[in-house]
């Protein structure tokens, strides 16, 4: 029993990170209206931003969050300017292919600039253990769950209680109508894209802290997991995407606890396929974009 609770905790910690990546992804897809393939690289660059902040300024978790958040924010603007803004009125696949190219560009640049080797990630919080229901949980897992919850709450407040959020949601729902209402659609889409990227960047920092290591090629599989989680959430709904991420994390960890660890991705993607067969709109209440 304790064994399964421990595996559930592992799944929750990993699922929370997937959830944060997926929330970011769904915000990007929601406001821009296009699928992105650079999210994995944005996650990686966020992680590197916090790595350099920890190394050169100080090992403070808030500093890391701020560094990852704003670095990814600017990457988001860069990606938006190159891949989306110019192609707003072009066929959708042009932006999509542009994001694939951008992902390769960022990954290869990162290998040149940061070096191809895996590096040790500084640890901004001390490792301690807390007993919960007889299961030992470490402070890093608590930190992850706490940061993910706070950021999700922050996003919820921005989305529902501020002018910005209302604009974001309006653009997400209908770009033409928003424009007619006097909303600057391009600017709002850019900010929305940056918010999504920033959440991904912070998720990158958490992953690097959790695994105590950082690597330029870490983004590839993570971007795919973020995409899968967001698909489970109907692509554009943040809360449903978060649920998708959590479930993928849990299923992976419970699955590997019964069968071999080599089947980790098999569990994740079989689950994805099954959900899409049974409920094509995912966990979303509305039909996804």
């Amino acid at each position: 029993m304790e064994y399964f609770i421990a595996q559930i905790v592992n799944g929750l910690a990993q699922g929370s990170i997937y959830a944060l990546m997926a929330i970011g992804y769904s915000v990007v897809v929601g406001v821009v209206g296009l699928v992105t393939f650079t999210h994995g690289e944005v996650i990686m660059l966020g992680a590197y931003a916090s790595y350099y902040a920890f190394t050169f300024v100080g090992e403070n978790i808030f500093l890391g969050i701020i560094a990852a958040f704003f670095a990814s924010w600017f990457i988001g603007i860069f990606v938006y300017k190159i891949c989306y803004e110019r192609f707003f009125d072009s066929p959708r696949h042009i932006s999509l292919i542009c994001t694939i190219g951008m992902s390769m560009l960022l990954k290869n640049l990162a290998q040149i600039v940061f070096g191809p080797n895996m590096k040790a990630m500084p640890q901004p919080i001390a490792l301690n253990f807390v007993n919960v229901l007889g299961v030992r949980i470490n402070t890093i897992q608590i930190l992850i769950i706490f940061v993910v919850l706070s950021l999700s709450l922050g996003l919820y407040i921005v989305n529902n209680k501020t002018q910005w959020g209302i604009r974001l949601r309006a653009v997400s729902q209908d770009k033409q109508a928003s424009a007619l209402m006097g909303i600057n659609v391009r600017r709002t889409a850019m900010i929305g894209n940056s918010i999504g990227c920033s959440l991904g960047g912070v998720a990158g920092m958490l992953i690097a802290i959790y695994y105590q290591s950082i690597l330029p090629t870490m983004g590839g599989s993570l971007g795919l997991k973020a995409f899968s989680s967001a698909v489970l959430g109907g692509l554009t709904e943040a809360s449903a995407s978060a649920l998708g991420g959590l479930l993928i994390g849990l299923i992976e960890n419970l699955g590997t606890s019964v069968l071999s660890n080599s089947y980790r991705d098999v569990f994740a993607f079989i689950f994805l396929v099954l959900v899409l067969i049974i409920k094509p709109e995912g966990f979303s209440k509305k039909v996804g974009g």
């Binding site: 064994y3 421990a6 595996q7 592992n10 799944g11 910690a13 990993q14 695994y211 290591s213 870490m218 599989s221 992976e252 960890n253 590997t256 606890s257 071999s260 660890n261 080599s262 980790r264 991705d265």
Partner: peptide, 16 residues
Amino acid sequence: ENYVEGERDFNSLLTK
């Protein structure tokens, strides 16, 4: 126990 190349999360494997 085995794992595939590129794996970074060994928590569930180690728990097992």
